[in-house]
């Protein structure tokens, strides 16, 4: 069977999720795949939960992934990763940034950020990679590079050429931030042994 990837990306508004899904789609397009990618703009982006889907195959119809069918979950925030974990296949791959961003009900002290999410996520997944992408991005000097660190990890788990990833990043990241983002991409790649 031909290759196909159904990728779900989740996190909070403002984490650079749209750019991450653009890079994935662009890299796959460079290798001749058909692509459908779905995002939600507007109100949800104001700090709310954000979900983006990228589907890659020889021919793709629906931009949305069927419940329980995602191959890979790229979670930019721990709670958001846990929230949609049932969308992923039983033997699916989870890449989870362990960064915690308190939602308003938690920040205001009305609810608690749930504990033990790493273990719960592990139960739902075939393979899991946990990393703190925020710490890596901060070491590089810009916390906004979290998204490209995540792309670096993903690139080790998808069968696309390194060159396609690099070209996609070059095309989509503003020139003045390119060097930083290339470093972030490499750091992400080093996470997977």
């Amino acid at each position: 069977m031909a290759k196909k990837w159904d990728i779900m990306i989740t996190g909070c508004g403002g984490q650079g999720i749209l750019l991450a899904s653009e890079i994935i789609a662009e890299a796959a397009m460079l290798e001749g795949y058909d692509i459908k990618k779905a995002d939600v703009h507007g109100m949800a982006q104001r700090g709310g939960s954000v979900i983006s889907t990228v589907r890659i195959a020889d021919k793709v119809y629906s931009p949305l992934i069927k419940y329980g069918d995602a191959d890979i979950l790229l979670a930019f925030e721990l709670l958001e990763g846990y929230r949609v974990s049932k969308y992923v296949r039983d033997d699916g791959v989870f890449i989870v940034n362990t960064q915690r961003i308190n939602p308003m009900p938690v920040a205001s002290g009305r609810e608690k950020y749930p504990e033990g999410l790493e273990d719960k996520i592990k139960c739902n997944a075939g393979r899991v990679v946990f990393l703190n992408a925020l710490d890596i991005a901060k070491e590089l000097g810009n916390f906004r590079a979290v998204n490209v660190v995540m792309i670096g990890v993903l690139s080790r788990l998808m069968d696309l050429k390194l060159d396609s990833w690099k070209k996609a990043i070059e095309r989509l990241v503003p020139a003045k931030h390119l060097e930083l983002n290339m470093k972030a991409f490499e750091k992400g790649r080093e996470v997977v042994g």
Binding site: S49, E80, Y82, P103, M104, Y113
Partner: peptide, 18 residues
């Protein structure tokens, strides 16, 4: 009509003013 199963112990993350 199917309703996707979501974890009950995950606090919601409503949109907020920036």
């Amino acid at each position: 009509d199917p309703v996707p199963e979501m974890p009950e112990d995950a606090p919601l993350r409503p949109p907020v003013l920036c």
